[in-house]
Structures are given as structure tokens and as C-alpha cells.
Design a protein around this nucleic acid. Structure first.
Lengths: 328, 328
DNA sequence: CCATGACGTGGAATCGATTCCCTAAAACAA
DNA sequence: TTGTTTTAGGGAATCGATTCCACGTCATGG
């Protein structure tokens, strides 16, 4: 393996000078620079990242912690992060928790000891233990998808998205609107989207029957179950349902079809997330488009700014867009 | 930051001894070991990975090159890889080409200079330039999803899967079977699956009209276009269609629905990949289940075996399973 | 003509580990 | 008692970079 020492010898200069050429810092004569560059080209020499980062304490690696790589939201975020980082010569170390909350904490440590320059956490919760840990780390960390008082984050306006969507249904004349949510520990998806729904109902003075509100987990199956509960347990049957993810909506559709209930005539339906498939469902699903990839890019951008001691925005809330399709 | 030097001083031993405790190598008295361990616990010291890898030339990092993270197949593979690696204390550096072939080559270099211990390439082609480059690198590399003569790989039995699926249609009585493929540069998905289809047709002495065979790219839209072409350009209309991915099949379905063509009565349909959504389409889509996650695990397992100079299997071809659903 | 500063360069320390080699005491064998 | 092994531990080199500091050489201005 060719090292800086070899280059120095071959070019007849000291390692110092080679280093100067590499980082173009300090004084180097045109002559010496030429020779060094020649030799570098000939040998195809590339400086060792390990050695460099041992000295400089910078690895040009960013850790990304995510709950799963198998659903669209995190995948898109990572894609965005990756694009932004690649442009700046940074690499991603991936830490997949596979939905295991404890691993979020664990991976923070693993990444620290890998001396990553920063961490992007695609968060599923804002538990105090996690927040405390983040505050205690002296590595720049950006949270994506959740608000977190005085930490850096990039998230979406979940509350207003849910509120707008609900209002949209109300304006269409629906009064009985059901809701399929998830655990409120997920502040964005669980709590805020539900609050948006409830507040919209309240401000239109519409009552919400307790059985209209179901809680699932993040998979299709639980959307199916939730819709089943809604239709079998409620006294006044809703005419519209909001599901907090497209996958839950897909589960709901699957139940509705099984029972021969027509969408949207008998049950209007909407999801969140603008999954690619939503467009191709029958009927195409109304959904909320968050700019996930943009969120990833933005998170990476602010993180790099912070790392390089430039001006950065600490907290960003991205916009959303309702995509109205035939399911309503 | 606490280093081995501090630990040595605090425990009243040399760095050598601390290192011995850390790696439990060489002779260390019970007494010294206790003291060192105490200090390590007190200080929460963790050895620097950079320093270690500078010396040992091992980083415990594996590079994963993939075409996109936004479709199910690579996501599942990465999940499998991640699980296996995590169990062995390895980390993943992610290199996302975003479907840009040139970046595959580029990232091989980037990863090498990051001194990754090995590379897993989720491949979309087997172009000579790429294969040559891989042979020329002196880092262990496993290819996933493509065969590559004398390199390490884990792939699927694409040929027989396609052949079986086609035969299944034939046995159901179909004689006019269309095919939506992709560019044959993708040897597995493009070439082998098509060959399986053609050979099955031939061995049943069924003719294949040239217009029955369409080529798309990997997105839903091109499935739509392909189905449109098949139905508008052919003289004898097919009664069944095989699409080489579920997404292509979804596009095809979308066209069929638009035209009011009933599935499977007027057109039977099948895809490949066992995407989660396939199950919830209307009608549920017949598809081929490859064990993507297993493939990832297997690739990681063999790679680690090779890295650690243990016995490994150079080439693995995984099994598949037809999932017959109502679309046929 | 000499002080000053810009320019060029190299020596050597440093980052934080591992590891080779050496010394020395203790344990054991002859 | 002497000679070998085993056990224990330290010194110092090393990995491949960066960077501080010192030291020349010129040109310039006072």
C-alpha cells in the first residue's frame, strides 16, 4: 500500500510538503507541487482516512439511526440524506433498530465510538430517556420526524395536516368521521395527527364517538382490524375514515372490499404518507404528501452546517400537501 | 477524551498491559487485570476504533452498494445484511447509487479508501467493466442478485422461477402468454427471467408472438405502458401476462382496470418479488417469493467467513416459492 | 547594509491504539 | 545448586497521516 511516505520519497520532498500539496495549505513551490502531483497521479495514491481522522478527529461519516428500512418514509429520508452527504464527501453509517426502541439508545453509543461526525435520528418517539441521552452527547444530532423542544430537528406539520384533512371531510358533508391512529408515544404520528383530527371535529362541533377512534400498529393487518372494529362496534356507522398511514388505510380498504362496502360511496378514506402505491389502489387513495426526501436533505444540510461551524437552522417544520384522489 | 494512556497511568501499569487486558492476550496477573478493569469501568473508557484500525488494518465496517433504497428487494436484503453484521459487531456503510451505474464503480473506490473490510454489492448488471474492477480489488466482495462466474455471489434461481411460473400458466390452459421484462443488461431480472419464460413456451410448443414481449424499466408507469402496448399492438390477444416485478404488474393492473378488463377472467397476471402490497391488490397478485432477507444474511455470513479466513461458500443460489393468488 | 517579512521546506511530535522484543522474577526440573 | 520454562510487564517502534516550530533564502524598504 502506498503511503504519504512513499510519495515523499519518490518526489524527493518531505511528508510535510506532500501533506501541504494534499490540503493545499502552507507554502509550496510550483516546482515541488508539480513533482508531488505527478507522483500522486502515477501511483494512484489516496490518503488513508483512518490516519487522517486519527489526527484530525473528523471521520466524514454520519450515522443514521432508523426504525426500519422497509417502509417508504424512512427510505425516502435516507435517500435525501444520502444525496446531500454524498455531495459533500460524507458517508453514511446505517444503524437499523428494526423497531426495537432500546437499540436507539444503544446505537447512539455505537456511533459515538465510531467517532461519527454527526448523527441523524429518524425518530419514532420522544421518550425522556432518549432525549436526555441526546442532550448528553457532545456530537451534533438532528432528529427527523419528531419535535423535540430544544434539540435540532426537522419534522412535518402533522397537526395541521391532520386538521386540514379532517376539515376537508367535514366540508364534503361528512359528520361521522372515524380515525385509525397509532400509539401516542409516537408524538408526531400518534399524538399530533390525532389531535388535529379531534380539534377539527371539535371546532365544527361534531361529536366523536369513542369507538370511532381505533389504534393500530404500523402494519397493514392492523388497519384491517381497526376498520373491522369500527364497523362492528360503533352504533352510528361513520361515512369517512382517516388513517394515519397509507398502510393502515390499505388494511382498511382490504376489509371494506371483503365486506363489499363501496369506497367512497359508503366509506370515504384517506391516509398519510403519499406512498407510491396509494396512487394505484382501487380506488386511488387520498393521502397527505410530506416531503420526506427533502426532510432528509434538510436534516443533512443543517447537520453539516453545524459540524462545520456555519450558520444553521435549529428547527425546521416542513410543509405538506393534500393529494385528493377518488377514495373520497 | 480518555485514552489508553490515561487508563495505564491510573491503573499504574503500562499501555501494553492495558492493551493486553482489552484484547486478553499475553500474560497479565490477576491483580493487574483487576486494577485495569476497575479503572476502565470507572472512566467508561472505550478504545478508539480509528487508532485500532490504523494499526490492525481492520475497520469492522462493511460497505453496501445498492441501486436504490426505495424498493422492497434491496431494502429487504439490507435488512438481512444488517442483522447478520450487527450480531458480529460490524457496521454498514451505505452507498446508494440512485440507479446510476457509474457510481457502482465509483463507490467501490470510495469504500476501498474507507478501508472497509468487505463489500456487498446489490447488483443490477454484470457488465465486464464492473466485473473486472471487482476482480482487481483485493477486498472481499459478495454480489447479491446476479451470477458472476468466478466471483462470490448469492442469487436466486431466476431462470427456474420464471420457467415454473410460465409452466403454471400453460397448465392452466393458457396458450397466449405475454411477458413484461426489463433490459437484459440486468442478467437476472432481464435475461434469465425472460429465458425461463421463452424456454417454457418452447418446450410446450407454444409460439410467442413478438409483440407479446414488452420491455419496461423498473417503475409502475412502464408496466402500464407495456400492458397498453400488448393489448393494442398484438393480433392475437394474450390471456395471461407475466411481469418480471410486482411493480410492473401493478402498472399493468392499472391499465387493465382503466379499460375494464377483468382479472383474471380476461387477463391472468403474475409478478415477481412478493411485495407486501401484492397481497392487498384487487385481485391479490400471484407472485414469486424470493428470500431477499435471507439472501442478505447469507451474503453477510459468507463475507464474514471469508474475511476471517474461515470456510465459506463462494456461490449460493437460493430457492424461490410461487405464491398463487386470485390474479390467475 | 541590515532588519523584516514573505516564501519554502523539513524535522519531529502527535493522534491512540497494537505488538515485537527484552528483562526479570517465580516456578519447576535435573 | 544450577539451568529451563513459564509468567509478568514495560520500552519503543509502528500504523499514516497532520501540524507546530525552526531554519534557511530572497526580496524589499528604510
Amino acid at each position: 500500500m502506498v503511503t504519504i511516505k512513499h510519495i515523499a520519497e519518490m518526489a524527493g520532498v518531505s511528508r510535510t510538503t506532500v501533506s501541504r500539496v494534499l490540503n493545499n495549505s502552507g507554502y509550496v513551490s510550483e516546482d515541488a507541487r508539480k513533482r508531488v502531483e505527478m507522483v500522486i497521479k502515477e501511483t494512484g495514491y489516496v490518503p488513508s482516512e483512518q490516519a487522517k481522522s486519527l489526527r484530525t478527529k473528523k471521520t466524514k461519516v454520519i450515522g443514521v439511526i432508523l426504525p426500519t428500512i422497509q417502509t417508504e418514509t424512512p427510505s425516502r429520508i435516507v435517500t435525501g440524506v444520502g444525496k446531500e452527504l454524498a455531495e459533500n464527501g460524507y458517508q453514511i453509517i446505517l444503524a437499523n433498530t428494526n423497531l426495537d426502541k432500546d437499540k436507539e439508545l444503544e446505537y447512539l453509543d455505537v456511533l459515538r465510538l465510531r467517532q461519527v461526525d454527526g448523527i441523524i435520528l429518524i425518530a419514532t418517539n420522544t421518550e425522556p430517556k432518549l432525549m436526555e441521552k441526546i442532550k448528553g452527547m457532545n456530537i451534533p444530532i438532528v432528529i427527523v420526524g419528531q419535535e423535540a423542544d430544544d434539540l435540532m430537528y426537522v419534522t412535518y406539520d402533522d397537526y395541521h395536516a391532520a386538521r386540514d384533512l379532517t376539515t376537508f371531510f367535514i366540508e364534503k358533508g361528512h359528520t361521522n368521521i372515524a380515525f385509525i391512529g397509532v400509539d401516542e408515544a409516537d408524538h408526531s404520528v400518534g399524538y399530533l395527527r390525532k389531535k388535529g383530527y379531534l380539534d377539527a371535529m371539535k371546532s365544527s362541533e361534531l361529536a366523536v364517538e369513542s369507538n370511532w377512534v381505533e389504534t393500530g400498529i404500523f402494519d397493514i393487518e392492523s388497519g384491517y382490524e381497526a376498520m373491522k372494529n369500527i364497523l362492528t362496534k360503533t352504533t352510528s356507522i361513520p361515512t369517512a375514515t382517516i388513517a394515519v398511514t397509507d398502510r393502515l388505510a390499505i388494511g382498511a380498504i382490504s376489509y371494506l372490499k371483503e365486506k363489499g362496502i363501496r369506497i367512497p360511496e359508503q366509506m370515504a378514506l384517506a391516509g398519510f404518507g403519499a406512498s407510491e402505491l396509494a396512487k394505484y389502489l382501487d380506488p386511488p387513495l387520498t393521502t397527505v404528501d410530506y416531503q420526506n426526501e427533502k426532510a432528509g436533505e434538510e436534516a443533512a444540510k443543517q447537520l453539516l452546517a453545524k459540524i462545520n461551524a456555519k450558520k444553521y437552522q435549529k428547527q425546521i417544520i416542513l410543509d405538506y400537501r393534500l393529494i385528493i384522489r377518488k377514495s373520497v
